[in-house]
Amino acid sequence: MVSTTEVAKHAGVSQTTVSRVLNRPEQVKKETYDKVMQALAELDYGNASAASEQHAEPAKRIAVLFAEDCAPAEFARLREFTESAQASGYELTGHALTGNESMEDSKALVKGVAGVIGIGSLPAELKEYLKEASPYLQAEEAVDEGKPFDGRKAAYLATSHLAEKDHQQIAWVGGDLPDGSERLQGYYEALAHHQLKLRKKRIHSTQSPTDFDAIAAELRAFKKPTSAFVAASYEDGLQLLDSLKSAGFKVPKDISIVVVGEPEGDDAELTAVKPPSAAQPFAQQVVDRLLQQIEGSETAMPAAEDELQLSKGNTVKKFKERQKSKA
């Protein structure tokens, strides 16, 4: 079996650092932690936390078995699993399987634990043993990914939000999306529900950034100017925002924007109708599910929220308030 000294040399850190990663990962910087975990994976280190096993109470200990096909990114989740287990009063130990272990070796890794979490393709014989020997959960099968994003409903809610803010001249802008026609249908339905006229000249299909500039330039030509936009995606909303600002419009003082979808990063500038949030982070879902088995209180996984969410962006203003501000 590979020693911690070899792991330390391979990762370019001290043996003490390796020990901290294995036993007290919360005390290690993420960059260092990831480096050591990658070294563990590359060296097929067979026991990712043997030392902590000697100190943890058997009845309050969970083992995580990483199959040999796990990528380094999977090992990096050990920190999340550890924190989730510790929050519930359990110690957690991780084991990176090499594929060369005998059944007796594998059994020894989980001896005396309260439960086992498997990640990756564990050997069939080992999985059968775990199912019989202790509470066991395969991580990939335990998470609740929630419902798929309903673009049509989101567009309906985005348009309705603007209508409820007394906007009547609401335009649509969007590029080519897989469910673009469904999102546009949601926009149509909301206009009809709020008894607002559907005007084809306010439906803008975009293919490039210059299309957004053209839309912004034409706004002043309308007898009844557009007071708000529904953007088919967050990216469309950002492009529109930039073009409106370049054309001299102030958002939301002059024009309001609500987008369908959410940003990929931390950007929360635009008011948006977002997909329902996952009920819990991945590691927390898995640990909680296992603890339900361990403590004899297993229930259905908590579902993700069914309702779409309106974010607290700053690109919407009530139409009457906007009118008053111009007076």
Rank of each mutant, 00 (worst) to 15 (best):
E140T: 15
L157N: 10
A56Y: 02
G99E: 03
F149L: 15
E269N: 09
G99H: 12
Y156S: 13
Y45W: 11
A50I: 06
R20E: 04
G118T: 01
S181N: 11
G180T: 15
K131I: 02
L137H: 00
E269A: 06
V259D: 08
L270F: 12
Y187M: 07
S243F: 01
A283Y: 08
S246G: 00
R79H: 14
F81H: 07
D288W: 05
S277W: 10
M37L: 07
V110T: 00
D213E: 03
F81M: 13
I255W: 03
H55C: 00
Y129I: 11
S84P: 13
E262Y: 12
L92G: 02
F229H: 13
E141A: 05
L270W: 09
C70A: 06
L137N: 03
P58W: 05
I170C: 02
D105Y: 09
L43Y: 10
E42K: 07
K253S: 05
L78R: 05
L43M: 08
L198E: 11
D69C: 02
L40D: 09
S19P: 10
L177P: 13
F319Y: 15
K200C: 06
A279C: 05
A272W: 11
R183Q: 08
E91V: 04
A114V: 00
H55F: 02
M301E: 08
T299L: 09
L241D: 01
Q138H: 15
E68G: 12
K60E: 07
D213K: 01
S134L: 10
L290F: 08
E74D: 10
R79T: 12
A48V: 05
R202P: 06
K318N: 06
A283M: 05
K250C: 13
H161G: 12
I170V: 07
G248D: 00
F81S: 02
L240R: 03
G118I: 01
Q86R: 13
P148D: 08
P178V: 13
